[in-house]
Simulated assay, not measured.
Amino acid sequence: MKTWRRSSLGLALVIAIVLVLSACGKKENNDGASSSPSASPTASQAASPEASADSKIEALKGKKIAVVMQFNQGTLSAQYLEGVKSQVEKFGGKLTVLASENDLNKMVTNLDNAINQKFDGILLDHGNADALTAGVNKALAAGIPVVAFDSGLSIEGVTSIAQNDQLLADKSLEALAKDAGGKGNIVKVWVAGFPPMESRQITYKAFQAKYPEIKEIAQFGDASKAQLDAQTQMEAVLKKYPEKGSITAVWAAWDEFAKGVTNAIKQAGRTEIKVYGIDLNDEDLALIQDPESPWVASAGADFTSIGQVQVRYLYQKLYGDKAEASVQIEPAFVSRELLPTDKKVTVADLGEYVPGWGKSEQGVTDYLTQLEQSVGK
């Protein structure tokens, strides 16, 4: 009897153990089934590539963008800023302008402020590598993308946009040489210390070597109060060379300089002297169209388009694309002969007379086009 009871108890214990193990096995199988790839909710409900792209585009809306400007005076700066503002608005972003009043120290401080305020992206307008490199590296370390215009920067991860400054200089100087018959006395208005000016100087030196019978008789230029200073300096040069024919032409490496020397020449009644400039805006075009004005031609790019292009490359970076390291804006050449005589032309309609003006598609991508369309709805 005792033996049977012990056997019964042993059998019951074995059955109990088997049942427990069986239950555990079922639980493990259920757990395993719930985590198998075929049954995974994550995999079965994974977003399609199209949905993923849509979410990335949607994430671009509402970005906070800072534009840190060295210059904030003159019509070119106004046109550039208009291009930046309009493109940021089309992308659904919010723009903050940090102007530096041609003070590099203030520009460095403004850049640092933009980083500390954690903007989503930073645009730089002018400045130079010596002043900006440390701040730009700080921005990149903080994960803030940077796109610079005419800043002379060469930093990995930064897209640097510039006008083709050597081509700008070449177009204006070659026109001067052609009109002057390859000889004469000229005045150069230029200033050192700015990346675009330094690039234009390279072409000017080549021009001097190419045309040895074109002599430089005076040179000046000051970026502070540029137009007024150029007018005052040109007045002094005209007094030094009072005879008609003693000065053939003036080459002005910036339109603010060109306006100043044009005023001085007109007031002195020396309109036999021709002015060739760089950069274009509505005020410049009015002077070039005026048959009594000595300013007869200028090379330039549409600064509104430049601002738009710069914003596009910044948003490429915000999207996650590896944008180009260097972008060149191709210039146009505008002479009085190209413009109508019966109406005033503005940069807005200059494209009717100068092919390619104001219609840059640089930096445009399919997803940025979709973003514009989405914001515009």
Results as ranks from 00 to 15, higher is better:
177 A>T: 12
100 S>D: 00
289 Q>N: 04
95 L>V: 00
164 N>M: 01
343 K>L: 08
199 S>Q: 14
343 K>A: 12
68 V>L: 00
193 G>C: 10
79 Q>T: 11
261 V>K: 06
266 K>G: 00
21 L>P: 03
280 L>E: 05
110 N>S: 01
159 T>E: 09
92 G>Q: 10
16 A>T: 13
145 P>I: 08
183 K>S: 14
155 I>S: 06
338 L>M: 15
353 Y>T: 02
113 N>I: 04
232 T>E: 09
358 G>K: 12
242 P>F: 02
281 N>Q: 06
190 W>K: 06
301 A>K: 05
220 F>C: 06
172 S>F: 02
34 S>K: 14
213 E>N: 15
210 K>P: 01
115 I>H: 05
171 K>D: 06
19 L>P: 03
166 Q>L: 03
144 I>K: 04
164 N>K: 09
109 T>E: 04
132 L>W: 08
23 A>E: 09
324 E>M: 12
365 T>L: 07
70 Q>R: 04
277 G>I: 12
202 I>W: 01
165 D>N: 15
221 G>Q: 08
333 F>A: 01
167 L>R: 05
355 P>D: 07
250 V>L: 10
182 G>K: 11
259 K>N: 11
317 K>G: 03
212 P>A: 11
92 G>L: 11
64 K>A: 09
327 V>C: 11
321 D>K: 13
373 Q>W: 05
128 N>A: 04
373 Q>D: 13
240 K>I: 03
239 K>F: 05
220 F>L: 04
87 Q>G: 00
47 A>F: 11
178 K>D: 13
324 E>F: 04
355 P>S: 11
47 A>V: 05
371 L>Q: 10
8 S>F: 14
144 I>S: 06
92 G>I: 11
